[in-house]
């Protein structure tokens, strides 16, 4: 397969996944914003930090508030942390390799792109923003569904899945890190009401609240939420869950090509560290440090995959 083809496939699914994740991130902000509380809250500025485009943001806006952040992520199209930009990039990448996609995949990407302007316009009124975010998530899930149910299990499919899972792992780490940047006001206790709401919003944003109750039963406990989204392999958006998929597909690629590359070694090392990590270790290291370290290694893995296969 041409490296360029694989590169387009890989980025196509990364962008679809990123659009979904940005929608989930905005959803956390909106959930937190409707919670009762004081004026000194900062859910919107933490949202901006997580996009990694804070500089772009503060070039255009003075203040991180609901209206500005929603516009920035949901509607604008002049920076990389924008949902419309991600959906457009996904479609552009897919279009370049249309014959490598199934009709269902292409139709999904293309009709998403066609419907985008109308959806975006609707979302300009604040009351519709949740519908818009639901639409983005739905389109992404339809794309994943089309991919897994129609694509031949060969190298093209492996590249699509590797891109999707790497991006998803990165996004889960970022979403969890929201909690680090969400400072609790002085008079709020750790384990207090606001703390509880914040954790609960994160759980809901990754659609894992039911999963939580079936894994842990009982009330929400922050360390269990962290454990679940990082170290539990049954959870499809957990770090270890995503990396398990990545090593699986990289392994199948190696079998198909008859050659083991450096990226497979790096991926296995990262997976093993997660698989044998204890929840205590995460907190000993510090959640933020643990997540930052993971994101860095996940990025390095992405770069190595790029060098091994995509250029």
């Amino acid at each position: 397969m041409l490296s360029r083809t694989a590169d387009h496939l890989y980025w196509m699914s990364r962008y679809v996944e990123r659009a979904e994740s940005l929608a989930r991130l905005l959803e956390i902000g909106h959930r937190l914003a409707i919670m009762p509380g004081e004026d000194d809250r900062n859910e919107w500025s933490s949202t901006v930090i997580i996009t990694r485009c804070a500089e772009d943001f503060y070039n255009s806006y003075d203040e991180a508030n609901e209206a500005n952040v929603t516009e920035f992520i949901g509607l604008r199209n002049d920076h990389p942390a924008s949902i419309p930009v991600c959906l457009e990039n996904a479609r552009t990448n897919g279009r370049a390799v249309r014959v490598a996609l199934t009709t269902s995949m292409w139709e999904c990407l293309n009709s998403t792109w066609i419907d985008l302007p109308a959806q975006r316009q609707k979302a300009e009124s604040a009351s519709n923003i949740v519908d818009y975010l639901d639409w983005v998530k739905e389109r992404s899930m339809q794309f994943t569904g089309a991919t897994t149910s129609t694509m031949l299990r060969r190298d093209a499919y492996f590249f699509v899945m590797i891109g999707m899972l790497l991006e998803r792992a990165d996004n889960t780490a970022s979403l969890l890190d929201v909690k680090y940047h969400l400072l609790l006001p002085d008079h709020e206790e750790i384990g207090g009401t606001l703390d509880f709401y914040q954790w609960s919003a994160i759980l809901r944003a990754v659609t894992a609240n039911r999963a939580y109750y079936s894994l842990y039963r009982g009330a929400l406990k922050p360390w269990q939420i962290v454990e679940m989204l990082t170290l539990r392999s049954e959870v499809p958006r957990s770090l270890v869950g995503c990396l398990g998929g990545v090593i699986d597909y990289l392994g199948r690629l190696s079998d198909m090509y008859g050659e083991r590359k450096e990226s497979l070694r790096i991926a296995n090392a990262l997976y093993a560290d997660l698989a044998y990590c204890r929840t205590d270790d995460v907190f000993k290291q510090g959640l933020h440090e643990f997540l930052t370290d993971f994101v860095r290694r996940n990025n390095e893995l992405g770069e190595q995959i790029q060098r091994d296969y995509l250029i």
Partner: peptide
Amino acid sequence: DLYVDENVVYMRTTQ
């Protein structure tokens, strides 16, 4: 997708 090395043309592939 193509490049020339020592006067030979190559295609960049995933393999």
